[in-house]
Design a protein around this nucleic acid. Structure first.
Lengths: 335, 335
DNA sequence: TTGTATGCGTTATCAC
DNA sequence: GTGATAACGCATACAA
């Protein structure tokens, strides 16, 4: 059922060999103009469409890259995908996506399913137990890791310097006069969240302040819940650093509901700079990790690896470390 | 380079024929337990991973569906993808995505590239000149159209009743006491936008009001720009219906900047119910098209077509029409 | 320039 | 139960 009319049919209809038909269709120059026209005409009439899998098998080239993300939707991942898409279009590559849903096993399974169907892999797996990946992922396929912790399995990767970003967030809040700075953490098993937490703790130590960490899971609901905890305390913090923007957003919602003024009563800053931060009221300060760029540059890196041909190059490539940039908006600007 | 260790290698290492190796790995029952263990052990040691393209070619089954959207990121499409992803996981299908970037040619090109690599196609192409699709798209592959206009090329499809949704939006604004209701339109070539515009015009006629239509392109920037036009008028409208939520969002931003009160000075309603509408201030009223459900149900429909096997079934399947639901939030609630 | 034949990695149909 | 072997649809080295 799949693809009924084959190159063979076209060749037959045009009265040439299958080889000539192939050449004509692929635009090679060693075919008479007359033959080419006959073949193309036949192909058009029969509505011939090349069979991707067959071509991939014959050429061992798919012009497709596999993308494995924790999820394939939502503000954050959507931006990553946008970056990848832009890069992919530039390189003429298609995208096979898969969500690992926070599970390493799923990620490995997805990668296995992609073998032989992609020319390279772009994977983001910020899981604590991601060491498993190093051994199970590379089916000698070019591979680029996105995010996660630097040097993970010393694969080529693009990582964000989460620690220094968090540090900067804390320093910024201090500069705005905050003295009691709380932190809404990301999932405990998330490596990036861990680094951000460490940065927060180091920042507070540096400033001689005492930390307060609330649990979170990167969702706006968690931000909202954390704020409820805060509101129940005898004393509210005057600064809040959320491990990502969605939680910061949820926090502002809860705070507004409670009539707490932002940034006067409490200054807020998030992390990632997803688009929605600009639409919030007040607009949320954040650390721009360049989510879009992470996607785009990862793809460029991968694309280069693919062109260079060898999967070995993959093992030698250096990791790019992206340093997040402080973006101050109304949620934390006091003067 | 692609996938170096093949089934042949495994068979050789296990000292069996390639046929037995295949059977053992695929869990068929006609193999000795002893052979199976030997094969699995060899496969594990050699890190064998089946070659997707080869398997697809041999089985003419890819367990993958192709998804073609105008774009593969952003609030709206991200929600569609989420729906598709949920359905796909349930059916054990992988997803090959591609953005057509508003161009029919691109969509066709993407579809061609997917032939032989997917078991079915899910396409959204709300373009005015999408008639081309009907002839060029179906490479006798199961196909489901998402959105667009109903009965487009009488392919099985899932469409939103944009006209009735728009009508409802206008009626709602009227009920809130609005007398001068403006509309920010979507792209002229977009079929869904056209229907929403028609619904708006019909609604105004019904209420005996005179329309004002501002051009737009579904981006927040367009909403913002439209508001600037409005602000420059001698008399502002007291109701605003944006053809989608992003434009409504941009409009509220512009209005807030100008110190116009929402909904007291002007009531606002959008269309689609993308997640960000809830985070806006004030939260934006909208028509819930069930973006997520469109994705999920489209996939279910496609999945069923694939199981049923025939591409012909595709031609007989009926179209599902989704009627959007009015969601009233603070941006248009006056009492 | 054109056609023939082989291989890509699997599955599936046979005999054994 | 197991092992040759023929597809699957295409590209290509080689021969003509």
């Amino acid at each position: 059922m799949a693809a009924s009319v084959t190159l063979n049919d076209v060749a037959k209809a045009a009265g040439v060999s299958i080889a000539s038909a192939s050449r004509a269709i692929n635009g090679l120059d060693n075919v008479t103009e007359e033959v080419r026209e006959r073949v193309l005409a036949a192909a058009g009439k029969l509505k011939y469409v090349p069979h991707g899998a067959a071509r991939a098998l014959a050429m061992s080239r798919t012009n497709t890259i596999g993308v494995i993300l924790p999820d394939i939707y939502g503000e954050f991942f959507s931006e990553i995908i946008r970056g990848i898409d832009v890069g992919a279009r530039a390189s003429g590559l298609h995208i096979l996506v898969s969500g690992s849903h926070g599970d390493v096993k799923e990620a490995v399974k997805a990668a296995r399913a992609m073998a032989g169907r992609v020319d390279g892999l772009l994977v983001m797996a910020p899981y604590a137990d991601a060491d498993d990946l190093s051994g199970k992922l590379p089916f000698n396929l070019p591979l680029v890791m996105m995010g996660g912790v630097g040097g993970q399995a010393d694969l080529p990767s693009l990582v964000v310097d989460n620690h220094s970003g968090a540090l900067e967030a804390v320093r910024h809040l201090c500069e705005q006069g905050c003295r009691r700075i709380a932190h809404i953490a990301g999932p405990e098993s998330n490596l990036e969240a861990q680094d951000r937490l460490r940065g927060y703790l180091d920042g507070l130590k540096e400033a001689g302040l005492s930390p307060q960490v609330l649990p979170g899971d990167f969702t706006d609901g968690a931000g909202y819940a954390a704020v409820q905890t805060l509101l129940a305390q005898e004393q509210m913090p005057d600064g809040l650093f959320a491990a990502n923007d969605m939680m910061a957003l949820g926090a502002t919602l809860g705070l507004r509901e409670a009539g707490v003024s932002i940034p006067d009563d409490i200054a807020i800053i998030g992390f990632d700079d997803i688009p929605v931060t600009r639409y919030a009221s007040p607009p949320i300060s954040t650390l721009r990790a360049g989510v879009f760029d992470i996607g785009r540059r990862s793809l460029e890196l991968l694309s280069a690896l693919i062109e260079r041909g060898s999967a070995e190059a993959s093992a030698s490539a250096a990791s790019l470390i992206v340093r997040p940039e402080l973006v101050v908006r109304a949620s934390s600007r006091r003067r």
